[in-house]
């Protein structure tokens, strides 16, 4: 069965959505991700949707829900790389995704996660030099 890979990078989980999201896939992702967060006690989740070209209200809501669930499990969520067309669609659908933090690309998203958690936690685990 099709699944979206969840990669672990230190205290962070990295999800890259490379395929068209359909409802079932989104539900599976929500399931997998919450499980992984609790298993790895991750502090941050970064979802890269730069390859996603179409969203509907359901996918939008799932994204918002994932963010809320992560928050409850004590992990920040950052959605990165949203396409302009996708952003316009979400706004027109009335989904402003409050509570989700956003960044332009993965690099900036990582920086945002790190700074929000304090460098001591994220930075050291990543082994990634601060730019």
């Amino acid at each position: 069965m099709e699944r979206i890979a969840i990669l672990q990078m230190g205290h962070f989980l990295l999800v890259t959505i490379q395929v068209d999201m359909h409802d079932h896939l989104a539900m599976t992702l929500q399931d997998d991700l919450t499980n992984r967060i609790s298993k790895t006690s991750a502090r941050g989740v970064l979802i890269d949707i730069s390859a996603l070209e179409i969203v509907d209200s359901f996918i939008g809501r799932i994204l918002a829900n994932i963010a809320k669930m992560s928050r409850i499990l004590d992990a920040e969520t950052v959605v990165v790389g949203m396409q302009p067309a996708v952003a316009i669609t979400l706004v027109e659908l009335g989904l402003s995704l409050k509570g989700i933090r956003t960044a332009l690309n993965v690099e900036k998203g990582m920086a945002l996660l790190r700074s929000s958690l304090g460098d001591s936690q994220g930075g050291s685990m990543d082994g990634d030099a601060e730019k």
């Binding site: 949203m82 302009p84 706004v91 027109e92 995704l97 956003t102 900036k108």
Partner: peptide
């Protein structure tokens, strides 16, 4: 507001 929200969704 819509413009601001859309820009925010993209991370700006």
């Amino acid at each position: 507001l819509k413009t601001v929200t859309a820009a925010r969704l993209m991370g700006a």
